[in-house]
Amino acid sequence: MRILCPCCGERDAREFTYCGDASRVMPALDAEADAWAAYVWGRKNPRGPHEEYWQHAHGCRHWLRVTRNTETHEILSVLLEGPWRARHEAKDPR
């Protein structure tokens, strides 16, 4: 696979580390155990578009929010995650 890193350009997937389902939202640290349980163990596991994290571990080390079709492996979008997300989104109207 190839991933278009917004920071580095298109790179082979072997430069990236897969970091799992990005549709989950981490609860607050003091949230109830049930909320955390749903976060830790619950997965929608869709067949089709899937929001997921990839880290450009052997590149800029940015975290990316990638939407990829789990059936075809087609990548639909790649966004920077983390502190740079707001700036990236302002620049990229998608």
Binding site: Q55, G82, P83, R85
Partner: peptide, 14 residues
């Protein structure tokens, strides 16, 4: 290392 980066990027970007 990856754990810390995940927290800083995903949970607490601020």
């Amino acid at each position: 290392m990856q754990h810390l980066e995940r927290l800083l990027n995903v949970a607490w970007p601020n």
